[in-house]
């Protein structure tokens, strides 16, 4: 389904929802890709494609992510949360240097979900891996299980949270693929920032949608998964690795 068509359907659904609700309530926010009354579906599998040959020295994805999600630190890098980080690689033999953004890879078979005792760590139907902070007990087993070091434990009290991104002390968190934006039909903040200010290295889309750019490129160009040996089938793919 192309974006325009989704948009039109979204408007229709929003209008329908508006008609159903009591007229006195002006609660409906405008245009959503998926209407609020439509559940995330396994027909979709959200993912990212990152071309690291275009990824330069900038940090725009990281800044944008932490701004969007209200992830603020206390100047203590060991315990501050990082949802996305730039990883610098240098080949041991040749010294060939590369840099790439690393975050939750939104695996199809996520080890964090397997190990979570309460099921707080879970994968949504559309492939987005999330932490349900209502049932997270803060055991940190998922942090140990994640192959990508993608998860952070909140070590200190948090204030100034964004309305769409609740965060609190004593629970684990990680990249949500900006699920609140995706549900509105937008792209994640890192992708938006990369395409606006950065190297235009990131593409977001539905891996199942054959008309999407991400699908087309994965179909016709080589790409790889980090730690493909674990066969986790990640939603985040890299090119040029």
């Amino acid at each position: 389904m192309n974006p325009e068509r989704r948009q039109v359907l979204g408007w229709g659904a929003a209008a329908a929802a508006g008609a159903v609700l009591a007229p006195g309530l002006s609660l409906i926010e405008l245009a959503r890709a998926r209407s609020p009354e439509e559940a995330a579906s396994a027909l979709q599998r959200w993912g990212l494609l990152i071309d690291i040959s275009k990824c330069g020295e900038c940090n725009d994805c990281v800044t944008a992510c932490h701004e969007e999600n209200g992830v603020t630190g206390h100047g203590r890098p060991e315990t501050d949360a990082q949802w996305i980080r730039k990883v610098n690689l240098r080949d041991k033999r040749t010294g060939h240097a590369q840099t790439l953004p690393m975050m939750c890879q939104h695996c199809e078979d996520p080890p964090c979900v397997d190990v979570c005792p309460t099921g707080a760590s879970f994968k949504r139907e559309d492939g987005i891996v999330l932490v349900d902070k209502h049932t997270c007990i803060g055991c940190r087993y998922c942090v140990m299980a994640c192959p990508y070091g993608a998860r952070s434990f909140i070590h200190e009290a948090v204030s100034g949270q964004k309305a769409d991104v609740p965060r609190g002390k004593g629970t684990v968190e990680s990249c949500t693929l900006c699920v609140h934006r995706v549900d509105r039909g937008e792209t994640p903040a890192c992708v938006e920032a990369c395409n606006r200010d950065g190297g235009k290295a990131m593409v977001f889309g539905d891996l199942n949608d054959s008309s999407a750019e991400i699908h087309r490129r994965l179909r016709s160009e080589p790409s790889s998964q980090v730690r493909a040996d674990l066969a986790l089938n990640t939603g985040v793919r890299y090119q040029g690795l």
């Binding site: 979900v113 397997d114 190990v115 979570c116 005792p117 309460t118 099921g119 707080a120 049932t135 997270c136 007990i137 803060g138 055991c139 940190r140 087993y141 434990f153 909140i154 002390k169 004593g170 629970t171 684990v172």
Partner: peptide, 23 residues
Amino acid sequence: LGRPDRLIVAMTYYNFKSIFAWN
């Protein structure tokens, strides 16, 4: 635990693929 006050959650929500839950 990060949220020891939620021990009741650990006793009421289970993910049986987790060895922790089995424990």
